[in-house]
Design a binder for these strands. Structure first.
Lengths: 212, 212
DNA sequence: GAGCATACCTACTCGTGCGTAAGGTTACGC
DNA sequence: GCGTAACCTTACGCACGAGTAGGTATGCTC
């Protein structure tokens, strides 16, 4: 009757999630390369070969992390921003969901994201995710423009959307580095920058470089 | 009179620059970890111990790259945005200088920057550089606000500046990935997003979250 | 309660790449 | 023309960490 358990045998699905949790923690703490499979295994309370048996090589493990966290985030956003709302309402809800997510997964997601940018093997995966975000935002802007009977070149919209997504990611980094900051307040600030800027553009205002 | 030279002996200062050039190329092509000191040495047309003799370990070498490129960029920006101009003019010139720099050093700077974000040892170095940029932008906004007799909490300004810097970095990434894009045009687009947004804020406009 | 599949372990191999020791070679002062 | 100092090389030691071989225990099925 050993009361020193916690070493229970667990079904695969459960252990896989524990491993992914540990991997996210360690990857975010150390970075992809500095993280060792041994440390991840230890953090998960398991031995290394189990990780290989279930999740495959280190790269595959990282991709699995990226995938899980990315999917969760996308679902959080998509679930919040219903497509039949007006543009500003959609933007606001999307931002709030996004910063809420980052606030709740601070060390987890934010650093994972920071990691993936640098390492070539994952840049593609990450770029695809971001491209979907940019597309959503660009679509939102386009929709709002058409509603006013105006039209803008695709590239321009894409670039504006890119800038907005970039600013948002940047504030997410800021939020991840300031544990005391409030996600909701951060979202409001972002909305001020993004919408008042984009709002002016939508009303047809244009800033041009001065002569010379 | 061997005419097969290029293997001249060169003074230290010159070789150091060649090594840094090579290091920037290789680091940007491969990423920090995947880059090997051997490849850097080969790319510089020199052998490995020379690199160690002049620039030290791999980390020190990377820091040296970061430092040189960072300084060049800061100088390019600071030289363009004279502090006695009106805020919009300063912002515009700063942006133009920035995108011009990135356009001219595409694979060099942009990827170096992307690299430094992920690797813990350099995150600090990078954060300091960015902090200086944010400070400059925040100071610019503050100056413009005071000129209109208005006042805003420091944190708010900092966050807005952070968002603007983030959006700009994001477009710099976009520019680095689109070799055909025009830096000047990209700067104009950024100015539209940044200034029309920030401009509204300066005039006292504020967006608030709807009830519920 | 025999058999089988699945969870799990300890203890190794082996490649890769950082960093260095010890020794050539070219320029330059005297 | 000869030392000396800086430039530059080839060739190695060594640690670290990814991935694996082979074996043990536990629970489930009939």
């Amino acid at each position: 009757m050993s009361s020193a358990p916690t070493f229970k045998r667990l079904p695969r699905a459960v252990r896989e999630q524990q491993m992914l949790d540990a991997a996210v923690r360690v990857f975010s703490r150390r970075g992809f390369h500095a993280a060792s499979m041994d440390e991840i295994a230890e953090d998960a309370g398991i031995s290394k070969p189990m990780v290989y048996a279930y999740l495959g090589t280190k790269e595959e493990l990282f991709v699995a992390c990226l995938h899980r966290e990315g999917t969760r985030m996308m679902e959080a956003i998509a679930g919040a921003a219903a497509p039949d709302l007006p543009a500003d309402e959609r933007l606001w809800r999307g931002l709030r969901a996004f910063f809420g997510f980052v606030g709740a997964h601070r060390d987890g997601w934010a650093v994972l994201y920071r990691q993936a940018r640098g390492e070539q093997p994952f840049a593609g995966e990450l770029a695809a995710m971001r491209a979907r975000l940019v597309e959503v935002v660009a679509g939102m802007l386009d929709h709002a423009l058409r509603a006013e009977g105006r039209e803008v070149a695709g590239t321009d919209l894409e670039v504006v959307a890119y800038a907005l997504v970039g600013a948002t990611e940047s504030l997410a980094d800021w939020l991840a580095d300031h544990p005391d900051a409030d996600p909701e307040k951060t979202a409001t600030r972002m909305m001020n920058v993004a919408w008042l800027g984009a709002g002016q553009l939508l009303r047809g205002a244009t800033w041009r470089p001065p002569a010379s």
